[in-house]
């Protein structure tokens, strides 16, 4: 009987502790695209532009993502030499929304806008994302100029971040005036 009471008490404390936490915004939304653009480019009013993917781009995308990249064009935002990109990439089973800022040929910032996986959300923290700052593409391999230290138990999310960073760096190098077409938001 004493043990039953103890269990009931533990259950009660358990749920009280758990459900006392106030519900927040939708699961895993850490930054909206507008907030990301505001922080990255100083304004969320920028008109997005489109980079049409040529065959060579599709090949590079397939090399990076190990699958066909859907769509004919990629949307991005630009302020001077700074470009901002938003991608969805699968970690293990669900997509993670990343925002990547590229200045010149280097990553200026990478953020997790929305995380939908069950595990691995630690990749959103600055201790992880700061590793990407200043990285560029390395030679013909298209790899990052330095290795990124992973997180135990978040391997697939880490890999998704690396793929997205590589693709943003590659595409930023492809942004030329004659390839840009204004898109409606």
């Amino acid at each position: 009987m004493r043990r039953v009471r103890l269990r009931l008490l533990i259950f009660a404390v358990f749920f009280a502790a758990g459900f006392a936490i106030p519900p927040a915004m939708a699961r895993g939304v850490y930054l909206t695209p507008q907030e990301f653009l505001q922080q990255s480019l100083g304004s969320s009013d920028h008109v997005s532009q489109a980079l049409w993917l040529e065959e060579v781009d599709k090949l590079r995308a397939r090399e990076i993502f190990k699958r066909e990249y859907p769509g004919f064009r990629v949307r991005y935002w630009q302020e001077g030499e700074t470009t901002a990109w938003i991608f969805d990439e699968i970690g293990k089973t669900r997509s993670i929304t990343f925002g990547v800022v590229v200045e010149g040929k280097q990553i200026k910032n990478i953020r997790v806008l929305q995380f939908r996986e069950s595990r691995g959300s630690e990749i959103r923290h600055p201790f992880f994302t700061q590793q990407f700052i200043g990285l560029s593409l390395k030679g013909q391999s298209g790899g990052l100029s330095q290795s990124v230290d992973g997180i135990t138990g978040a391997t697939l999310s880490v890999r998704a971040a690396i793929r997205v960073a590589r693709f943003a760096l590659y595409l930023s190098g492809r942004t030329a005036p004659n390839q840009q077409v204004a898109m409606d938001d």
């Binding site: 758990g18 459900f19 936490i21 519900p23 927040a24 069950s118 135990t152 138990g153 391997t155």
Partner: peptide
């Protein structure tokens, strides 16, 4: 069944891997 009852908090009901060790869950 996993239920995200609050941002960054979830409850699991059912049969699950215990959160011990390095390779037990992954």
């Amino acid at each position: 069944i996993e239920w995200d009852f609050a941002k960054n908090h979830s409850a699991t009901f059912g049969q699950f891997l215990l959160p011990v060790g390095i390779i037990n869950e992954t």
